[in-house]
Amino acid sequence: MNVFIHELRGEMKLYSRSRELAFFTFMLPLIFFVLLGSVYGSGDKINGYRAADYLLTGMIGYGLIATAFAGLAIVLVIRRENGVLKRLRATPLPAPFYIAAVLLTTLIAFAVMAACLIALGMILFGASFPKAPVSLVATLILGGATFAALGVAITGFIRRAEGASAVINAIYLPVAFISGAFFSQKHFPEVLQKVADVLPLTYFIDLVGDVMLKGTQIWSEPKDVAVILVWGIAGALLALRYFRWVPRED
């Protein structure tokens, strides 16, 4: 267990030293929230919520996919391709400790960011404190675990460190957009709405709105939970199947 704590500390230090991660996955959602939030007037409504409140749920969704999916996947691909993961395999650090430390670091970063978003919302845009806080925490953990599993899974399909950011950006930015992270999907073409209907981020953002703004409990939204969970399980299975410690040879 001491080894796990040691590794977790190491991962947290690595996370805090990485300017790229700090900016693209941590700061960017906060910046977007402030910028977009100041565009809407206080009377504007989106999907029945105050515009700034809706935007807060969307930005938590955007923060989730940026941190747990994109940031995690890029870090793992780079570490695999430059040989750090291979080196780790030669040490007595148990693989589950390593994976758990990396995932937990990602979840902590996401939790801190979500807290910052909520605080910014309350300070700048008059958002209220989350109405069902325990359910919100459960929702964040569910979302974090699901997108982290998908992030680990995607590493198996990326071959080189150089292309990793490009490929992952090309996936997560459109997904965030289609899932309604920046604005409501109501005015999207029907095709995009159909796509949005299967994406896990759509359900996560919806669930955050339910528990944070309406005060619904997480167990009262079984459909949202089920869709997120199915994606999470699929991600975990793909991750177990395709995750590699060493670069592919050829």
């Binding site: 080894v3 590794e7 690595l14 430059n82 650090l93």
Partner: peptide
């Protein structure tokens, strides 16, 4: 291959903790 954002001593200390 190492952690480029850690110092020489920090890299060694991180790996030392596994043994």
């Amino acid at each position: 291959s190492f952690y480029d954002s850690l110092t020489v001593a920090e890299n060694l200390a991180l790996f030392a903790g596994y043994y």
